[in-house]
Design a binder for these strands. Structure first.
Lengths: 345, 345
DNA sequence: GAGCTGCGTGGGAGCGCTCCCAGTCGTGAT
DNA sequence: ATCACGACTGGGAGCGCTCCCACGCAGCTC
């Protein structure tokens, strides 16, 4: 036996039922108005909206989620190891984009940092039980099982970056090849004769792309890529330092270096100083990421900027679309990068 | 009329009901086990846990939230303007701490960036309708109405930082006064005779604290604070640059400067270079924040480190405690700061 | 041995929504 | 006037959980 209807919900807030009563309509009608159904007459809609305003009614998320079997929430998942490295403008830029895109949707953003395999498993289970409508995945490693896992479970998913050239999971990436090309073209355009590069780890697709761009630009300029001019780093400052010393040892005459990350460029700059070479007079330097550090290096570092906020927005839009129409098409976006010129080159 | 019980929930996942059936107990008992009630015999508990494991049961958040009238989620709110400034290690440090503390609670973290007054209002309403169990507020300005608003509505709330010395809202802060003292003591200890300071905006409590610490340390060393040695900045690099020039103009003999932010220290360093003064030989420099920039300045900048991750953890613990026991006590924590010595001093 | 405790337990009654199936009306066609 | 047919609308049934009342069954006390 239903008890007498109370004047408010449990926590003192009005419920849909009270809105209906005040507007003199049924629950279903209020629900229709809230969800923007067209099958409501204008008169009724206005009355309901008035009642909602009068009462300051706000739908109860949990009730709605339970009844409609969706959560109105998406998760942004960040492998913890990356947060340190990417802490800088990268992560917060993405975040800003995601948040902006979500601002007028009343979809919530759930942030999940994953530190351990245990936590990853837990998140997979969590996502599996439809506790989120979709997942945004940032900075995924080539060997991370999570993306495929989620994809198999049919959970709408958009990654930031690709794991390989033929990435199947929907993703938004920036044009790493193009960015590297821009950098090298710029160096060549400034009359540099011997352009070297310090790359990231060979097993990271992003590193390969930047190397490809470097080589492509050289070829386009009619030069033969020379393996002596390529030194391997791992995106850290220390590796940039070591790689720079190696390059100078191999080819003392080099007069420009494209570094696949700002951090490596900083290490390289330190090595050059130790070796008594000036930047940019003796050696021009270009980085990648356009981090805060780039601006503050001495001299300020020319760098390739990624559209972080744009990627965040694009990812979010793609995910929402996928959630909305079951995602028949798998979005694969590549956003352009841009060269920010400073005095290091 | 209840329909026949199905074998799984709507989305194909087992429900509490199926767990109960498999374990041969009632719904109530399973619920008790899940929620850790002591009023269950060990035998029964084991049977239920087995059934949960067999079925891979995961409680449905929305259902639970609706029935129990709590959301198992807390919001981390960041005024947007701040994200840029604080982007660096600050925000991600806090985030890491919060996330770590939440890792084994199955409470979710909701991230909300607030850009506009409209969004602020919307969030207030959102929080008001108990859609989150509590709120973590980062980098609040002195004139932000949100904290008091939330407090009035009785929403559990913990801020990062204080708006004034007698902050009433529960908060976790770091010891800005102590950090500044450390910095100045260090400078005096290195034999510096004339220690100046570049402060933040007078209307920011954190800036006043750092100034207080500076003055306190001088007094403790038997020196009289001299207003000529205090220049006002606004935490930006540019303001640090201007303030430094001002200080040198007023007191050319100064040989040490404590800057209330790393960014200002960077500006100051630039000014010193322009004026032909070396760091640290002519002028020793100390910053505040220990940002990534500090490490990479030339020379590397001595700086006061705040326990970001620790603050994140402390805030979270405080908030969870407040949520749990209705928060009769208002936590006010001040965590110690630490001086990181590098070659700028 | 009757009457108390109190632990363990089952399950009814919701929580506030959405879904969807029946209506109830007006309208135009016949 | 009659009928068919949309356009709107009301409200029952449930979503999967928690809360809490009531009940069974020891183990006690007197």
């Amino acid at each position: 036996m239903a008890m007498a209807r109370r004047g408010t919900g449990r926590d003192g807030r009005p419920t849909l039922e009270q809105v209906a009563a005040r507007a003199g309509v049924g629950r279903g009608t209020v629900s229709r108005v809230i969800n923007g159904s067209p099958r409501v007459s204008d008169r009724t809609r206005a009355a309901v909206q008035q009642a909602i305003a009068d009462l300051g009614y706000v739908p109860h998320r949990a009730a709605r989620a339970l009844a409609a079997n969706r959560s109105d929430a998406i998760a942004l998942v960040v492998p913890e190891a990356e947060t340190r490295l990417f802490a800088e403008p990268y992560f917060s830029g993405i975040l800003r984009g995601v948040s902006a895109e979500l601002a007028d949707t009343d979809i919530q953003l759930l942030l999940t940092l994953i530190r351990t395999p245990k936590e990853r498993a837990r998140f997979a289970q969590y996502a599996a039980s439809h506790r989120v409508d979709g997942v945004l995945l940032v900075s995924v490693h080539g060997d991370d099982p999570l993306p495929d896992q989620l994809a198999e479970m049919g959970i709408p998913l958009v990654m930031n970056g690709r794991r390989s050239a033929d990435e199947l999971v929907p993703h938004v990436d920036c044009d790493n090849v193009g960015g590297a090309q821009l950098a090298v073209e710029h160096l060549l355009g400034r009359g540099r004769a011997t352009v070297a590069t310090i790359t990231g780890p060979a097993d990271m697709y992003v590193a390969r792309c930047r190397l490809d761009g470097y080589q492509e630009a050289l070829r386009a300029a009619g030069r033969h890529p020379d393996s002596d001019l390529v030194a391997r780093g791992d995106f850290t400052e220390e590796s940039g330092h070591a790689a720079m010393r190696e390059l100078i040892a191999r080819r003392p005459e080099l007069d420009a270096v494209f570094c696949a990350s700002d951090l490596m460029a900083i290490g390289a700059r330190r090595a050059l100083r130790e070796l008594g070479r000036s930047v940019p007079d003796d050696v021009a330097l270009v980085g990648f990421d356009d981090s805060a550090l780039a601006r503050h290096l001495d001299p300020p570092l020319t760098s390739v900027r990624q559209p972080m906020e744009g990627m965040g927005r694009a990812m979010t839009r793609a995910l929402l679309a996928e959630i909305a129409d079951g995602g028949p098409e798998r979005p694969r976006l590549v956003l352009p990068t841009e060269l920010v010129r400073r005095s290091s080159s």
